[in-house]
């Protein structure tokens, strides 16, 4: 189904979705939000693109196989959990540091992992279902 309105609108929407998803991801540390919901929003953006211009086009826009994105998310989460090891903390304990005046933590890395895993997982499913139907 090709619709001029949807394809044109999708271009605006996808950018909006992606930026908003990053905002939700980052604000999730102390306020409602976080990796899971952020990942869902980002996946929605690409899903709309897939509906508007076809799965092949959405895959091209994504550049990377969504399954790889999902596994990279797993890698991030594992790294966040394992990071505590060399520093002598308990498994999956939060590790905090400061980079240029900003506090960064393994918690954020874990959340980014969740974000990527959700984006990858959902898009794998949506693309696969769209292609088989």
């Amino acid at each position: 189904m090709k619709s001029l309105i949807l394809t044109t609108g999708a271009r605006l929407l996808i950018a909006l979705f992606l930026v908003f998803s990053l905002y939700v991801l980052l604000r999730g540390h102390n306020a409602p939000g976080g990796g899971f919901i952020g990942g869902l929003i980002a996946a929605c953006g690409f899903a709309i693109h897939a509906f508007a211009s076809g799965v092949a086009e959405a895959r091209r826009a994504l550049r990377v196989d969504p399954r790889v994105i999902g596994v990279l998310g797993l890698v991030c989460a594992l790294a966040a959990g394992l990071m505590a090891w060399p520093l002598g903390f308990d498994p999956f304990a939060g590790v905090w540091g400061e980079v240029a005046g900003y506090k960064v933590s393994s918690v954020l890395l874990f959340d980014i992992g969740v974000y990527l895993a959700v984006v990858g997982g959902i898009l794998t499913l949506i693309f696969a279902l769209e292609e088989t139907l």
């Binding site: 596994v71 990279l72 797993l74 890698v75 594992l78 959990g81 394992l82 090891w85 498994p91």
Partner: peptide, 22 residues
């Protein structure tokens, strides 16, 4: 002792991620 219990779970997942990426 903490890691003795956690690592047997974490290692297969690390192997899984690597094996999938390659």
């Amino acid at each position: 002792m903490n890691w003795t219990l956690a690592l047997p779970i974490l290692v297969p997942f690390c192997a899984a991620a690597l094996a999938f990426l390659l």
